[in-house]
Structure formats: C-alpha cells, structure tokens
C-alpha cells in the first residue's frame, strides 16, 4: 500500500531536521577540516569544486573526488554518511538522467543492445561519466563544508567571497527560522495525522497541504513582525553588523596554500 501522504511529508520534514542535527554534531567533532578556519574551508573547497567543474578529463575529476573522500576520512565524516546523504541520491537522480546519453550521444559504437540495436557509444559513456563524477564530486565537497563547520561560520566566511553583510544576515536569520518552521509544519502534520483515520481522498489531501501552507505563511509573517520589534528593542536601525572570531593560524595558511595548490594542479593537469 502506498505510504500515507502525511507520513511522507512528515518524513521529509524530519529528514531536514535530522540533517541539521547531524551536521551540527559532526562539525563539533575533532578532525582535520574541523580544525581549520571557516574561511579557509570556504575558499579551499570552493576552489576544488571549481577545478572539478572546469576539468575536461575524467581522471582529473576522479582525482578531485578521491581527494574529497580522503578529506572526509581525515575529518571523521563516515562513508556511511556520505553514501546515504550524497552518493546514493546523486547516483539515482543523475544516473537516471545520464543513462539515455549513453545511447543518444553520437560517436564510436562499442556495443549494440540485442534486439533494440541501440548503440552504446564511447562518447556516450564518457559524457555520462563526466556528469556523474562531477555531480558526486561537487556534492561531496559541499557536504564536507557543512559537516565540518558550524553553519553560522560558513555564512560569515562567505564574506571572503564578497557576499554583502546584509545577505549574510538574511541567510542567518532565514536558517534560524527554517528550523522553527520545519518543526511547526512537522507538528501540524503530526496532529493532523493523529486525527485522521484511514486514507484521505485526493481533494482532502490537497486541502490539508494547502491549508497547512496557508497557516504557515500567516505565522511566518506574524513572526517577522514580532522579530522586527525584538530587533528594534535592541537598537536595530537597519544596519547590520557581524562579529566573527576567526583567526588564521600558521596551519590555516598552510592548508589554504595546499588547497589552492591542489586546485591549480588539477587545472594545470587538465590542459
């Protein structure tokens, strides 16, 4: 029997909350990346993502991927976490998208499917490989950042990429209330579920989803009005200031140099 739609939404919301919790715990664990300044990680991991994006040879992307996996191991981010959070999902999604390309891309036919006579081309395999490897590499690196750095440090470190301070503040406040609204939505669906016996008809299910969104919207806007007052009460006049306690150690500089050198090496090897 199909899973109850309320349950599926609840599961989705729960997964969001669980990810945030996992990330927080993992960022607090000791490991190589956890020790680094957040700015080094943002700049370093981003340059690796860029190197993987620019590469035109499969082995270069594979090397960056291997580097990402090694970094994960050194930072106590388990392969189980990587597999469940990134690898399997990306493989399923991008794999499904890349599969037809194996047959559709013009090129040298390596093999023909029996009966259908579809050619598997070398170019098709390569292009599917590019897509999959790039997706997995970038997603792994992105997860490493979030799983080894407290979220607010990630946001503050975005300042090194010249993100305006106002946007950093908005991103911070939005993430703070995402957790609250996720939980509110979770509670709404749970309480709805407890009052529902048996499967709902399609229209009724739609009605539940839409009404919940409406309630959530009203609540969000109310909250924004109240938060605005609370900000004013502490002297907010429209200007945003951020305080970070980032401090670069010699190890941080070393790590930054290593990141940039590796990214540069990847680009150079790709010439």
């Amino acid at each position: 029997m199909r899973l109850h739609f309320l349950e599926r939404t609840i599961d989705g919301l729960h997964a969001g909350l669980a990810l945030a919790l996992d990330a927080e715990n993992s960022a607090a664990a000791g490991g190589l990346l956890q020790q680094l300044d957040a700015r080094v990680k943002v700049a370093g991991l981003f340059s690796l993502i860029l190197a993987a994006a620019l590469a035109t040879r499969l082995w270069v992307i594979a090397a960056v991927f291997a580097l990402a996996v090694a970094l994960a191991a050194l930072s106590r981010v388990s392969f189980r976490v990587l597999a469940t959070r990134v690898w399997i999902g990306a493989l399923a999604f991008t794999g499904a998208i890349a599969l037809p390309a194996v047959f559709l891309t013009p090129g040298v036919a390596l093999y023909r499917l029996p009966a259908l006579h579809w050619p598997i081309t070398a170019q098709g395999l390569t292009t599917a490989g590019f897509l999959l490897l790039r997706v997995e590499t970038a997603a792994t690196l992105a997860l490493l950042l979030v799983f080894t750095t407290p979220w607010m440090h990630v946001l503050k470190a975005l300042r090194v990429l010249r993100v305006p301070v106002l946007l950093v503040a908005i991103l911070g406040m939005a993430s703070r209330y995402i957790l609250l609204l996720l939980e509110t939505a979770h509670e709404m669906f749970e309480s709805r579920k407890s009052r529902t016996v048996g499967p709902l008809a399609g229209a009724a299910r739609r009605h539940v989803a839409v009404a919940s969104s409406g309630v959530l919207l009203s609540r969000s806007l109310q909250l924004s009005g109240d938060v605005y007052l609370a900000m004013q009460a502490r002297g907010f006049r429209g200007d945003v200031y951020l305080l970070d306690d980032f401090a670069m150690t010699r190890f941080d500089w070393l790590a930054l140099a290593a990141f940039l050198a590796l990214a540069a090496a990847a680009v150079w090897a790709d010439r």
Binding site: M152, S175, V227, A230, F236, L243, D245
Partner: peptide
C-alpha cells in the same frame, strides 16, 4: 527574542547595534 542563528551572535547583537 532569539532571532540570531547562534547563541554567540544573539548576545553580541545588542552591543554591535
């Protein structure tokens, strides 16, 4: 009352403003 993303930022908000 607690609109900042971390406890540290929360306590620092008023003085910074």
């Amino acid at each position: 009352q607690l609109f900042n993303p971390t406890v540290f930022d929360e306590v620092a908000f008023g003085p910074l403003q």
